[in-house]
């Protein structure tokens, strides 16, 4: 490794620690070199120019940076970029009805606009990504803390949606609209299964 053979004194003074990695972001492959300290959020925003995920707190307390990594909703701010070599990252900008990056709207994009599920828009891309991940978790029968019977498949009601979306803060208070948008898309999806 980079540091092998260095004296302990020099280790503390080394300036940059570059690591090569590959990220597939919304279908496109990117080869980049990052500081070990670089978060996935900063790699996306500052290095790849994908500013769809937002920085609201930069340490896991607001959800604005939510993206889908290998299909799972995670917080990009608490993810070191270097740990995600080879991963597939999808941001709200890349979501569509077809495969990520195939263009066009995702049903949640339309539902958020129709239900006015945002005001300032800053938490919104994270809300949209979180909703995609959450509906997928729901479709796989995963429980939440408000699921009454842990042995049964949960119902997609307002309380379930609210609890599962509570990791995405919205200071504008667009929660009722967000809930309505997620419920609409969730119901449409249930209807087609």
């Amino acid at each position: 490794m980079f540091l092998d053979g260095l004296s302990p004194e020099r280790r503390g003074t080394l300036r940059r620690m570059d690591h090569e990695l590959t990220l597939r972001v919304v279908g496109a492959e990117h080869r980049l070199s990052v500081d070990s300290r670089t978060s996935l959020l900063d790699a996306l925003r500052q290095r790849l120019g994908n500013t769809s995920p937002k920085k609201g707190c930069d340490h896991g307390q607001c959800g604005s940076c939510t993206v889908l990594v290998d299909g799972v909703r995670v917080l990009a701010c608490l993810t070191l970029a270097v740990t995600r070599d080879g991963s597939e990252v999808v941001t709200a900008d890349g979501l569509s009805a077809g495969p990520p990056g195939s263009g066009g709207d995702h049903p949640l994009h339309r539902a958020f606009v129709d239900e006015d599920a945002f005001q300032c828009g800053y938490c919104t891309p994270g809300q949209v990504c979180s909703a995609v991940g959450m509906l997928d978790e729901f479709a796989r029968g995963r429980p939440s803390v408000v699921t009454g019977d842990l042995g049964a498949a949960p119902e997609l009601d307002d309380a379930e949606i609210a609890e599962r979306m509570s990791g995405n803060l919205c200071r504008c208070g667009a929660y009722p609209g967000i809930r309505a948008a997620v419920a609409r898309v969730g119901r449409e999806r249930e209807g087609t299964r």
Binding site: L75, G151, N168
Partner: peptide
């Protein structure tokens, strides 16, 4: 876990958020 140790499932689900529990 849900059947035999519901206390553990509930404890996990009451912590943090969906995103953080995935990580």
């Amino acid at each position: 876990v849900r059947r035999h140790y519901p206390v553990l499932a509930r404890a996990l689900l009451s912590g943090a958020s969906g995103q953080l529990r995935n990580m």
